[in-house]
Design a binder for these strands. Structure first.
Lengths: 327, 327
DNA sequence: TTGTACGCGTTATCAG
DNA sequence: CTGATAACGCGTACAA
């Protein structure tokens, strides 16, 4: 592990000159530069990242915080961020937030303490006022869900519109009593999808009944239970809109056992190979992650620049079989 | 951002004493300690991680390198490592290796340059001699696949035994012409699974025919093609052993379209909900990741200690429907 | 038990 | 265009 000092000595220059060569400072004679580069090669010199970080107070690392890396949706986001970061010579620090709202704040503050170059976060709570002091010093971009109590860049998908389209699609297939399957309405995305669902009902002149909303469906037993409750309402439910891929996946066994018309928010692996294959509104997690990472880089490069804070990606209905199941 | 110096001044002691308090050095009078802790709280003091890292030459970060985070198997490994790291106050740096062997070395060296406290790697190549100089300075643990040309801790699963069991299971259902589906034999895991498959054939007195091995099945078209080739051999193939979850998932549409008896190495989400549900040999990625991370911590704590380098986890046959399809 | 002095490798400042 | 000097915040060695 040669140091800059040693390279300088070998090249017969001062450390500062080596530093200049390293940072592409134009004020170095080509001859000197060659000389220094030669010595760097000879000594196998690699800059000490810690020293640089220490000096600059910032490390070449972006953070990405998601509820759960094992979820393919968030995995795709992480993957996209990492790819984009790599192109900028940044490493990627991953943090799982889990699904416990209380863990979000400590988890995020713990990553931020690492003085990253930027942070991409898919939050699980609605209150991010505590990030204000941090946001002033390092770029933070939200994905999937918007920040609460904080102005920050956000890359979202059209939750309301997608839910509306998915629900309308069921209505188009002749269904009038449509259940809403979800985990918890505390997540703003899910709340927005409930709105979209209600809008579609209203558009069609159908009445909304709170008994049609079945929550707690993020696990297999929870989903089976929610579906059973929907059937037991006596409302004659013939179709279901699942508001989230996790719930949809959890509901698959129950759906396969007792088929019912279904459209779902969020595509997932093998959704097209199930029986029935699942009609979904597809999101684009990779683009979400890519855009967020790019924004981080841009903010770092041009701190003052005014940019649109909110980017909403469209979603696309992918029609498969589950919507065609008759009553 | 208060510094140690400022805390010291506020507490009326020297910086070194603050340092001692921070590091739980017993040689501090309780009264002094209280005093210092008070000042730390008052000034909202947070130790500068960079300075510590710079000084110690090691940062509180573990790396984890996997072929692909989006693959649920590797996602589970990353997740387990991150969880274990969190318990030790370590952050987790994630690197995707992709599937291009040429990228492995530069990718790993780039993470290692970050002077991590440890690295967990699920490699894609067989030659890790280049890691020798690094391994001397920081603990490296391999998961899923063993290192090549390097002695290092490895946490593996019983590839040969699992493949043998899965193949034998098909034989037990009366099949005698069984195809082998895989991506590429360059991966040692896949090569070991091929061995297990051959052993099972031999155990049953069945002959092995190279034409039964269909590779390049990691994508949907590739898998469909491989399956078609197997059918076209004229050998009367009535069953298939898929050597890898990625291939199995890729083969699902083709299997659903033209059912054929199947057992597969590696479980995956919804494998139990497909038609037919897939009989698999289940691995345990979470345990792999957990053990590897624990080993890193242990190596760091006791550099000299002799530990078993190779840990092979058992795998478990999960019988579902795909093995029961008649010829 | 506590403090002093120094250095880790890099870069900013300012002088030459 | 180049170099000397100092400083970033912390921990080690040694002294008191």
């Amino acid at each position: 592990m040669a140091t800059m000092r040693e390279v300088a000595a070998a090249a017969g220059v001062s450390p500062k000159t080596v530093s200049r060569v390293l940072n592409d400072d134009p004020h170095v004679l080509p001859a000197t530069r060659r000389q220094v580069e030669e010595s760097m090669r000879a000594l196998d010199y690699v800059p000490n990242l810690f020293a640089t970080a220490f000096r600059s107070g910032r490390s070449p690392v972006v953070g990405v915080a998601v509820p759960d890396i094992v979820d393919p949706f968030f995995a795709a986001i992480v993957n996209a961020v990492e790819e984009a970061a790599l192109a900028e010579d940044l490493s990627t620090l991953v943090t799982s937030l889990g699904h416990d709202p209380a863990r979000e704040r400590p988890a995020l503050e713990s990553v931020l303490r690492r003085q990253l170059s930027g942070l991409v976060v898919a939050p699980i709570t609605n209150d991010h006022a505590f990030l204000k002091p941090w946001a002033a010093r390092i770029p933070i971009a939200f994905v999937d869900r918007a920040p609460g109590g904080l102005v920050a860049d956000a890359f979202l998908q059209d939750d309301r519109g997608g839910a509306r389209e998915a629900t309308a699609h069921l209505i188009g297939h002749g269904h009038t009593r449509i259940g809403f399957l979800g985990d918890a309405l505390s997540a703003p995305t899910i709340a927005a999808r409930l709105e979209g669902y209600q809008e579609a009902l209203a558009d069609a002149g159908l009445s909304f009944d709170p008994a049609l909303v079945a929550l707690g469906a993020a696990t297999r037993p929870g989903a089976a239970d929610a579906l059973a409750r929907l059937r037991a309402t006596g409302l004659g439910v013939t179709a279901v809109f699942s508001s989230d891929a996790r719930c949809t996946m959890a509901a698959v066994p129950a759906i396969t056992a007792h088929p019912i018309a279904l459209t779902a928010f969020g595509d997932f692996p093998l959704a097209d190979s199930l029986t029935p294959s699942i009609t979904v509104v597809a999101q684009d997690p990779a683009t979400l992650g890519r855009l967020a990472a790019a924004r981080l880089v841009e903010r770092a490069a041009h701190p003052g620049r005014r940019l649109r804070r909110r980017t909403v990606l469209p979603v696309a209905l992918v029609e498969r079989d589950s919507c065609r199941i008759p009553a």
